[in-house]
Protein backbone atom coordinates (compact mmCIF):
# COMPACT_ATOMS: atom_id res chain seq x y z
CA UNK A 1 0.00 0.00 0.00
CA UNK A 2 1.39 3.35 -0.95
CA UNK A 3 -0.81 6.24 0.03
CA UNK A 4 1.84 8.78 -0.84
CA UNK A 5 1.20 8.00 -4.50
CA UNK A 6 -2.10 9.85 -4.23
CA UNK A 7 -1.62 13.41 -5.33
CA UNK A 8 -4.05 15.67 -3.44
CA UNK A 9 -4.18 18.26 -6.21
CA UNK A 10 -5.03 15.72 -8.89
CA UNK A 11 -7.48 14.17 -6.45
CA UNK A 12 -9.38 17.42 -6.02
CA UNK A 13 -9.25 18.09 -9.74
CA UNK A 14 -10.68 14.67 -10.56
CA UNK A 15 -13.28 15.16 -7.85
CA UNK A 16 -14.77 17.98 -9.91
CA UNK A 17 -14.83 15.70 -12.93
CA UNK A 18 -16.42 12.82 -11.04
CA UNK A 19 -19.08 15.10 -9.56
CA UNK A 20 -20.23 16.69 -12.82
CA UNK A 21 -22.48 13.90 -14.19
CA UNK A 22 -24.14 13.59 -10.79
CA UNK A 23 -24.54 17.32 -10.55
CA UNK A 24 -26.17 17.62 -13.97
CA UNK A 25 -28.58 14.73 -13.44
CA UNK A 26 -29.48 15.76 -9.90
CA UNK A 27 -30.17 19.39 -10.70
CA UNK A 28 -32.43 18.33 -13.55
CA UNK A 29 -34.32 15.96 -11.28
CA UNK A 30 -34.55 18.69 -8.67
CA UNK A 31 -36.50 20.88 -11.08
CA UNK A 32 -38.75 17.95 -11.99
CA UNK A 33 -39.47 17.19 -8.34
CA UNK A 34 -40.00 20.87 -7.55
CA UNK A 35 -42.80 20.71 -10.12
CA UNK A 36 -44.30 17.83 -8.17
CA UNK A 37 -43.26 14.96 -10.42
CA UNK A 38 -41.15 12.02 -9.27
CA UNK A 39 -39.25 10.69 -12.27
CA UNK A 40 -37.40 7.51 -11.30
CA UNK A 41 -36.13 7.13 -14.85
CA UNK A 42 -32.97 9.21 -14.37
CA UNK A 43 -30.74 6.18 -14.86
CA UNK A 44 -32.46 5.32 -18.13
CA UNK A 45 -32.29 8.89 -19.43
CA UNK A 46 -28.62 9.16 -18.45
CA UNK A 47 -27.59 5.99 -20.25
CA UNK A 48 -29.61 6.99 -23.32
CA UNK A 49 -27.91 10.37 -23.26
CA UNK A 50 -24.56 8.64 -22.86
CA UNK A 51 -24.96 6.58 -26.04
CA UNK A 52 -26.69 9.31 -28.08
CA UNK A 53 -23.91 11.72 -27.24
CA UNK A 54 -21.26 9.11 -27.90
CA UNK A 55 -22.68 8.05 -31.27
CA UNK A 56 -23.11 11.58 -32.56
CA UNK A 57 -19.70 12.67 -31.27
CA UNK A 58 -18.00 9.71 -32.95
CA UNK A 59 -19.88 10.16 -36.23
CA UNK A 60 -19.47 13.92 -36.50
CA UNK A 61 -16.14 14.19 -34.74
CA UNK A 62 -17.53 17.05 -32.73
CA UNK A 63 -17.97 16.40 -28.98
CA UNK A 64 -20.09 19.53 -28.49
CA UNK A 65 -22.63 18.25 -31.01
CA UNK A 66 -22.53 15.02 -29.03
CA UNK A 67 -23.52 16.79 -25.85
CA UNK A 68 -26.39 18.50 -27.67
CA UNK A 69 -27.54 15.14 -29.04
CA UNK A 70 -27.34 13.68 -25.55
CA UNK A 71 -29.56 16.42 -24.18
CA UNK A 72 -32.00 15.83 -27.02
CA UNK A 73 -31.94 12.07 -26.48
CA UNK A 74 -32.59 12.40 -22.76
CA UNK A 75 -35.38 14.87 -23.40
CA UNK A 76 -37.07 12.66 -26.01
CA UNK A 77 -36.99 9.70 -23.64
CA UNK A 78 -38.39 11.83 -20.83
CA UNK A 79 -41.18 12.88 -23.18
CA UNK A 80 -42.35 9.27 -23.05
CA UNK A 81 -42.52 9.54 -19.28
CA UNK A 82 -44.34 12.86 -19.58
CA UNK A 83 -46.94 11.35 -21.90
CA UNK A 84 -47.48 8.40 -19.59
CA UNK A 85 -47.75 10.31 -16.34
CA UNK A 86 -49.25 13.62 -17.45
CA UNK A 87 -51.52 12.56 -20.29
CA UNK A 88 -52.31 8.92 -19.52
CA UNK A 89 -52.18 9.62 -15.76
CA UNK A 90 -50.09 6.53 -15.06
CA UNK A 91 -48.41 5.80 -11.76
CA UNK A 92 -45.18 7.80 -11.61
CA UNK A 93 -43.14 5.19 -9.76
CA UNK A 94 -44.01 2.43 -12.22
CA UNK A 95 -43.51 4.69 -15.24
CA UNK A 96 -40.13 5.83 -13.98
CA UNK A 97 -39.00 2.25 -13.47
CA UNK A 98 -40.26 1.41 -16.94
CA UNK A 99 -38.29 4.32 -18.34
CA UNK A 100 -35.10 3.01 -16.76
CA UNK A 101 -35.62 -0.55 -18.04
CA UNK A 102 -36.51 0.75 -21.51
CA UNK A 103 -33.59 3.17 -21.56
CA UNK A 104 -31.11 0.43 -20.64
CA UNK A 105 -32.40 -1.74 -23.50
CA UNK A 106 -32.53 1.12 -25.98
CA UNK A 107 -29.00 2.26 -25.17
CA UNK A 108 -27.44 -1.15 -25.60
CA UNK A 109 -29.32 -1.53 -28.87
CA UNK A 110 -27.99 1.77 -30.21
CA UNK A 111 -24.60 1.08 -28.70
CA UNK A 112 -23.87 -2.00 -30.78
CA UNK A 113 -20.80 -1.36 -32.84
CA UNK A 114 -19.64 1.51 -30.68
CA UNK A 115 -17.73 -0.64 -28.23
CA UNK A 116 -13.99 -0.11 -28.02
CA UNK A 117 -14.02 3.16 -29.93
CA UNK A 118 -12.42 6.26 -28.50
CA UNK A 119 -14.60 9.36 -28.86
CA UNK A 120 -13.10 12.65 -30.06
CA UNK A 121 -11.56 14.30 -27.03
CA UNK A 122 -13.20 17.23 -25.38
CA UNK A 123 -11.17 20.42 -25.42
CA UNK A 124 -9.95 21.62 -22.06
CA UNK A 125 -10.58 25.23 -21.33
CA UNK A 126 -7.43 27.18 -20.85
CA UNK A 127 -8.18 30.44 -19.17
CA UNK A 128 -5.10 32.61 -19.51
CA UNK A 129 -3.80 33.60 -16.10
CA UNK A 130 -6.23 31.53 -14.04
CA UNK A 131 -5.26 28.11 -15.39
CA UNK A 132 -1.60 28.80 -14.72
CA UNK A 133 -2.07 29.58 -11.03
CA UNK A 134 -0.07 27.11 -8.94
CA UNK A 135 -2.54 24.88 -7.07
CA UNK A 136 -5.95 26.38 -7.70
CA UNK A 137 -5.34 26.60 -11.43
CA UNK A 138 -5.07 22.82 -11.72
CA UNK A 139 -8.00 22.15 -9.39
CA UNK A 140 -10.50 24.76 -10.51
CA UNK A 141 -9.58 26.31 -13.83
CA UNK A 142 -8.29 23.64 -16.16
CA UNK A 143 -11.37 21.56 -16.82
CA UNK A 144 -13.53 21.06 -19.84
CA UNK A 145 -16.48 23.26 -20.67
CA UNK A 146 -19.03 20.84 -19.20
CA UNK A 147 -17.76 21.19 -15.63
CA UNK A 148 -18.50 24.88 -15.78
CA UNK A 149 -21.75 24.35 -17.66
CA UNK A 150 -22.90 22.20 -14.74
CA UNK A 151 -22.09 24.97 -12.30
CA UNK A 152 -23.84 27.53 -14.50
CA UNK A 153 -26.98 25.38 -14.67
CA UNK A 154 -27.05 24.98 -10.89
CA UNK A 155 -26.73 28.72 -10.45
CA UNK A 156 -29.40 29.39 -13.03
CA UNK A 157 -31.79 26.91 -11.45
CA UNK A 158 -31.19 28.41 -8.01
CA UNK A 159 -31.80 31.91 -9.35
CA UNK A 160 -34.88 30.89 -11.30
CA UNK A 161 -36.49 29.05 -8.41
CA UNK A 162 -35.77 31.77 -5.92
CA UNK A 163 -36.06 35.08 -7.74
CA UNK A 164 -38.22 34.71 -10.83
CA UNK A 165 -41.92 34.49 -11.44
CA UNK A 166 -41.44 31.34 -13.49
CA UNK A 167 -39.76 29.72 -10.51
CA UNK A 168 -42.59 30.75 -8.25
CA UNK A 169 -45.15 29.22 -10.60
CA UNK A 170 -43.11 26.02 -10.85
CA UNK A 171 -42.97 25.72 -7.08
CA UNK A 172 -46.68 26.47 -6.78
CA UNK A 173 -47.46 23.64 -9.18
CA UNK A 174 -45.30 21.34 -7.12
CA UNK A 175 -46.67 22.35 -3.76
CA UNK A 176 -50.37 22.34 -4.58
CA UNK A 177 -51.45 21.49 -8.08
CA UNK A 178 -55.14 22.01 -7.37
CA UNK A 179 -54.54 25.57 -6.21
CA UNK A 180 -52.19 26.28 -9.09
CA UNK A 181 -54.82 24.96 -11.49
CA UNK A 182 -57.47 27.12 -9.85
CA UNK A 183 -55.24 30.15 -10.36
CA UNK A 184 -55.20 29.36 -14.07
CA UNK A 185 -51.72 27.91 -14.42
CA UNK A 186 -51.37 25.10 -16.92
CA UNK A 187 -50.24 22.40 -14.50
CA UNK A 188 -49.72 19.68 -17.10
CA UNK A 189 -47.87 21.95 -19.53
CA UNK A 190 -45.54 23.26 -16.81
CA UNK A 191 -44.84 19.76 -15.58
CA UNK A 192 -44.07 18.48 -19.07
CA UNK A 193 -41.59 21.31 -19.55
CA UNK A 194 -39.95 20.49 -16.22
CA UNK A 195 -39.74 16.80 -17.15
CA UNK A 196 -38.12 17.68 -20.49
CA UNK A 197 -35.57 19.87 -18.73
CA UNK A 198 -34.80 17.04 -16.34
CA UNK A 199 -34.38 14.63 -19.24
CA UNK A 200 -32.03 16.97 -21.07
CA UNK A 201 -29.89 17.46 -17.95
CA UNK A 202 -29.74 13.72 -17.27
CA UNK A 203 -28.81 13.11 -20.91
CA UNK A 204 -25.93 15.58 -20.67
CA UNK A 205 -24.82 13.98 -17.44
CA UNK A 206 -24.73 10.61 -19.19
CA UNK A 207 -22.77 12.06 -22.12
CA UNK A 208 -20.26 13.45 -19.67
CA UNK A 209 -19.57 9.92 -18.49
CA UNK A 210 -19.23 8.37 -21.95
CA UNK A 211 -17.42 11.26 -23.63
CA UNK A 212 -15.18 12.70 -20.96
CA UNK A 213 -14.97 10.74 -17.78
CA UNK A 214 -14.42 7.20 -19.02
CA UNK A 215 -14.28 7.90 -22.17
CA UNK A 216 -15.70 5.01 -24.13
CA UNK A 217 -18.97 3.13 -24.43
CA UNK A 218 -19.83 0.02 -22.41
CA UNK A 219 -23.32 -1.33 -21.70
CA UNK A 220 -24.80 -0.18 -18.42
CA UNK A 221 -21.88 2.16 -17.87
CA UNK A 222 -23.79 4.66 -15.73
CA UNK A 223 -23.80 1.94 -13.01
CA UNK A 224 -26.37 3.48 -10.72
CA UNK A 225 -25.24 7.12 -10.95
CA UNK A 226 -28.79 8.06 -11.96
CA UNK A 227 -30.13 6.49 -8.80
CA UNK A 228 -27.50 8.21 -6.69
CA UNK A 229 -28.62 11.47 -8.33
CA UNK A 230 -32.15 10.75 -7.13
CA UNK A 231 -30.84 10.19 -3.62
CA UNK A 232 -28.88 13.40 -3.92
CA UNK A 233 -32.07 15.41 -4.40
CA UNK A 234 -33.37 14.02 -1.12
CA UNK A 235 -30.01 14.71 0.50
CA UNK A 236 -30.18 18.29 -0.75
CA UNK A 237 -33.66 18.83 0.72
CA UNK A 238 -34.64 20.11 -2.74
CA UNK A 239 -32.17 23.02 -2.56
CA UNK A 240 -29.87 23.64 -5.57
CA UNK A 241 -26.85 24.69 -3.53
CA UNK A 242 -26.98 21.59 -1.48
CA UNK A 243 -27.15 19.52 -4.66
CA UNK A 244 -23.79 21.08 -5.51
CA UNK A 245 -22.41 20.21 -2.09
CA UNK A 246 -23.78 16.68 -2.27
CA UNK A 247 -22.45 16.09 -5.78
CA UNK A 248 -18.94 17.08 -4.69
CA UNK A 249 -19.24 14.93 -1.62
CA UNK A 250 -20.23 11.87 -3.67
CA UNK A 251 -17.69 12.74 -6.34
CA UNK A 252 -15.13 12.82 -3.55
CA UNK A 253 -16.14 9.40 -2.26
CA UNK A 254 -15.90 7.90 -5.75
CA UNK A 255 -12.52 9.44 -6.45
CA UNK A 256 -11.02 8.50 -3.09
CA UNK A 257 -12.27 4.93 -3.46
CA UNK A 258 -10.76 4.68 -6.94
CA UNK A 259 -7.49 6.12 -5.69
CA UNK A 260 -7.38 3.68 -2.81
CA UNK A 261 -7.96 0.84 -5.27
CA UNK A 262 -5.06 2.08 -7.36
CA UNK A 263 -2.84 2.50 -4.32
CA UNK A 264 -3.46 -1.12 -3.38
CA UNK A 265 -5.06 -0.75 0.04
CA UNK A 266 -5.57 -4.01 1.94
CA UNK A 267 -9.36 -3.77 1.49
CA UNK A 268 -10.55 -5.91 -1.48
CA UNK A 269 -11.54 -3.95 -4.57
CA UNK A 270 -15.18 -5.12 -4.41
CA UNK A 271 -15.68 -3.70 -0.96
CA UNK A 272 -14.21 -0.37 -1.98
CA UNK A 273 -16.51 -0.32 -5.01
CA UNK A 274 -19.50 -0.79 -2.70
CA UNK A 275 -18.69 2.31 -0.72
CA UNK A 276 -20.49 4.96 -2.83
CA UNK A 277 -23.73 2.96 -2.60
CA UNK A 278 -23.36 2.30 1.12
CA UNK A 279 -22.63 5.96 1.77
CA UNK A 280 -25.70 6.90 -0.27
CA UNK A 281 -27.80 4.71 2.03
CA UNK A 282 -26.18 6.23 5.10
CA UNK A 283 -26.84 9.74 3.84
CA UNK A 284 -30.46 8.86 3.05
CA UNK A 285 -30.92 7.57 6.58
CA UNK A 286 -29.50 10.72 8.09
CA UNK A 287 -31.45 13.07 5.83
CA UNK A 288 -34.79 11.32 5.89
CA UNK A 289 -35.59 12.58 9.37
CA UNK A 290 -36.64 15.89 7.83
CA UNK A 291 -39.40 15.46 5.27
CA UNK A 292 -40.83 18.96 5.54
CA UNK A 293 -38.96 20.35 2.57
CA UNK A 294 -40.32 17.88 0.01
CA UNK A 295 -42.75 19.42 -2.48
CA UNK A 296 -46.23 18.67 -1.15
CA UNK A 297 -47.67 17.34 -4.42
CA UNK A 298 -44.64 15.14 -5.16
CA UNK A 299 -45.66 11.98 -6.98
CA UNK A 300 -49.39 12.69 -6.92
CA UNK A 301 -51.44 12.35 -10.08
CA UNK A 302 -53.14 15.53 -11.25
CA UNK A 303 -56.44 15.25 -13.06
CA UNK A 304 -58.36 18.44 -13.72
CA UNK A 305 -61.94 17.36 -13.22
CA UNK A 306 -63.23 20.82 -13.90
Amino acid sequence: MDLSSINPILLLASLMVAATPLLLAAVGELVVEKAGVLNLGVEGMMITGAICGFAIAVNTGNPLLGVLAAAAGGAVLSLLFALLTQVALANQVASGLGLTLFGLGLSSLIGQGYQGIRPPSFPRLNIPGLSDMPVLGRILFSHDLMVYLGLIIVTAVWFMLKYTRAGLILRAVGENHEAAHALGYKVVRIRIMAILFGGACAGMGGAYISLIRVPQWTEGMTAGIGWIALALVVFASWKPWRVLLGAYLFGGVTVIQLNLQAAGVAIPVEYLAMSPYLITILVLVIMSADKSSAPASLGRVFHASR
Binding site: A94, S95, G98, G105
Partner: peptide, 21 residues
Amino acid sequence: PAAAIQMFQGMLLFFLLAVDV
Protein backbone atom coordinates in the same frame (compact mmCIF):
# COMPACT_ATOMS: atom_id res chain seq x y z
CA PRO B 1 -29.59 -8.25 -30.87
CA ALA B 2 -30.26 -9.27 -27.25
CA ALA B 3 -30.85 -5.64 -26.37
CA ALA B 4 -33.83 -5.55 -28.73
CA ILE B 5 -35.59 -8.09 -26.52
CA GLN B 6 -34.80 -6.09 -23.41
CA MET B 7 -36.29 -3.05 -25.08
CA PHE B 8 -39.27 -5.09 -26.16
CA GLN B 9 -39.93 -6.00 -22.52
CA GLY B 10 -39.59 -2.36 -21.48
CA MET B 11 -42.08 -1.35 -24.18
CA LEU B 12 -44.55 -3.86 -22.81
CA LEU B 13 -44.57 -2.09 -19.45
CA PHE B 14 -45.00 1.28 -21.15
CA PHE B 15 -47.95 0.17 -23.21
CA LEU B 16 -49.52 -1.45 -20.19
CA LEU B 17 -49.24 1.71 -18.12
CA ALA B 18 -50.60 3.79 -20.98
CA VAL B 19 -53.55 1.49 -21.70
CA ASP B 20 -54.25 1.27 -18.00
CA VAL B 21 -55.69 4.77 -18.09
